[in-house]
């Protein structure tokens, strides 16, 4: 369900220190859609996401978001003594005046999203005792409790096992469909972007490509940005295309 553009990026230049990473970027992202950002380490994926989230200023150009943004950093290994429900409740900060404490409505909202990520049974558990995957899901519930329209995740799957990765993307897809949530995430797995995103941003050193995911991701474009070999495989049981990294170095095992 696309209801106009939620994110409009015009002539955007992103730099880290004095180094220009991304130049003259223009794109629009409709509400309820998903943008994947792929590229090698150090190319500027995280810097781009931080600029989109409004945490850093762009070197030039503009980012216009017609709604609220929540951002999940790459490292979710934060230390907090709060329990899970208290942690999720912090998502209401945007709506509470300085003298207000979260009330029963806020608690209901927090519990709703905690149920959405299937962690309601851990509501009173200490956040620090959770596994990396559970922490990630709690922080997603926190972001959703803030009623965000755009959710930006920096390599959300990097700390997750395969089962939790599947769960995370299933939840994100449902949120896109049911709540018209717009999602931007970066990843090192091209298949994740290929199967979950409508739009794709491919960042290489000195090159950038943006477009419909299915149109621009192919073996040669992946080779171009990652400088390694890829092969394409069509899986017969679900008719989906997968990209497999084929190392040039042979290992004799």
């Amino acid at each position: 369900m696309h209801e106009g553009n939620l994110l409009t990026v015009s002539n955007l230049t992103v730099q880290r220190g004095k180094k220009r990473l991304i130049e003259n970027l223009d794109f629009e992202l409709p509400q309820g859609s998903c943008l994947g950002v792929v590229g090698p380490n150090g190319v500027g994926k995280s810097s781009l996401l931080r600029v989109l989230a409004g945490l850093d200023d762009p070197a030039s150009g503009s980012v216009v978001v017609s709604g609220t943004v929540a951002y999940l950093p790459q490292d979710v290994n934060l230390k907090s003594d709060l329990n899970v429900l208290e942690m999720v409740l912090l998502g209401r900060a945007r709506y509470l005046k300085w003298y207000q404490q979260p009330n029963s409505i806020d608690r209901t909202e927090a519990k709703k999203w905690l149920e959405m990520v299937s962690l309601e049974h851990l509501a009173t558990a200490s956040f620090m005792t959770l596994s990396g995957g559970q922490k990630q899901l709690v922080l997603i519930a926190q972001a959703l409790t803030s009623d965000c329209d755009l959710l930006i995740l920096d390599e959300p799957s990097s700390a997750l096992d395969l089962q939790n990765q599947e769960k995370l993307f299933a939840i994100l897809s449902e949120l896109q469909d049911v709540n018209s949530l717009t999602v931007v995430f970066s990843t090192h797995d091209p298949n994740q972007a290929y199967h979950h995103c409508e739009q794709l941003m491919m960042l290489g050193f000195g090159q950038q490509q943006h477009g419909q995911c299915k149109a621009i991701m192919n073996v040669s474009s992946l080779k171009e940005i990652y400088k390694v070999n890829f092969e394409e495989v069509e899986w017969k049981s679900n008719n989906l295309k997968y990209f497999i990294h084929v190392p040039t170095t042979r290992f004799n095992i």
Partner: peptide
Amino acid sequence: DDHAKSLGL
């Protein structure tokens, strides 16, 4: 700071 800012604080 970043996390707090992203929650609208």
